[in-house]
Amino acid sequence: EVTIKANLIFANGSTQTAEFKGTFEKATSEAYAYADTLKKDNGEYTVDVADKGYTLNIKFAG
């Protein structure tokens, strides 16, 4: 089991951190699915992958 950390960075400057656990593939998939649910209210997003994929910096356009 691994932990994927998602740093969520919103257009208004606020930030939030979420963690997803499971296999690497499952946790990564859940992180992207979570970002997709936030897209409606926060706009499109870009992802900067860090720490060999264990950290995702997800920035929303607003």
Rank of each mutant, 00 (worst) to 15 (best):
E1G: 08
E1P: 06
E1V: 07
E1Y: 07
V2E: 14
V2F: 07
V2S: 07
T3H: 08
T3P: 04
T3R: 10
I4C: 02
I4H: 00
I4K: 00
I4G: 00
K5G: 04
K5E: 06
K5R: 13
K5A: 09
A6M: 12
A6G: 04
A6S: 06
A6V: 11
A6E: 03
N7P: 01
N7K: 12
N7R: 13
N7S: 06
L8I: 15
I9D: 05
F10W: 11
F10S: 03
F10A: 02
F10M: 10
A11P: 09
N12S: 12
N12V: 05
N12W: 07
G13S: 09
S14E: 07
S14I: 13
S14C: 05
T15P: 06
T15R: 11
T15W: 15
Q16R: 15
Q16E: 07
Q16T: 13
T17R: 12
T17H: 14
T17E: 09
T17S: 10
A18D: 05
A18R: 15
E19Q: 11
E19D: 08
E19R: 09
F20V: 02
F20S: 01
F20M: 02
F20L: 02
F20D: 00
K21N: 14
K21I: 13
K21F: 15
K21G: 07
G22Y: 02
G22Q: 03
G22E: 03
G22I: 01
T23A: 10
T23I: 10
F24Q: 07
F24T: 05
F24A: 07
F24P: 05
E25D: 11
E25W: 06
E25Y: 07
E25G: 06
E25R: 03
E25F: 07
K26S: 15
K26P: 02
K26Y: 13
A27E: 01
A27Q: 01
A27D: 00
T28K: 08
T28G: 03
T28E: 05
S29F: 10
S29K: 09
S29H: 15
E30A: 14
E30C: 06
E30Y: 11
A31V: 13
A31F: 03
A31E: 00
A31T: 05
A31R: 00
Y32L: 15
Y32S: 03
A33Q: 08
Y34E: 02
Y34R: 04
A35V: 15
D36G: 05
D36V: 05
T37G: 10
T37M: 15
L38W: 12
L38K: 09
L38I: 07
K39H: 04
K39W: 05
K40G: 12
K40F: 09
K40Q: 11
K40A: 10
D41W: 15
D41C: 06
D41T: 15
N42A: 13
N42C: 04
N42I: 06
N42P: 01
G43T: 02
E44P: 15
E44H: 14
E44N: 15
E44K: 08
Y45P: 02
V47D: 02
V47Q: 02
D48L: 12
D48S: 11
D48A: 10
D48N: 13
D48V: 14
D48Y: 13
V49N: 05
V49T: 11
A50C: 05
D51S: 06
D51A: 06
D51Y: 03
D51L: 04
D51G: 06
D51M: 06
K52Y: 15
K52E: 13
G53S: 04
G53H: 03
G53N: 03
G53Y: 03
Y54D: 03
Y54W: 10
Y54G: 04
Y54P: 01
Y54V: 05
T55S: 07
T55Y: 04
T55H: 04
L56H: 02
L56P: 00
L56N: 01
N57L: 13
N57P: 00
N57C: 05
N57H: 11
N57V: 11
N57G: 04
I58N: 00
I58W: 02
I58A: 01
I58G: 00
K59G: 04
K59D: 03
K59T: 13
K59H: 13
K59C: 05
K59L: 08
F60G: 00
F60A: 00
F60T: 00
F60P: 00
A61C: 05
A61D: 07
A61T: 14
A61L: 12
G62P: 12
G62A: 13
G62S: 11
G62F: 10
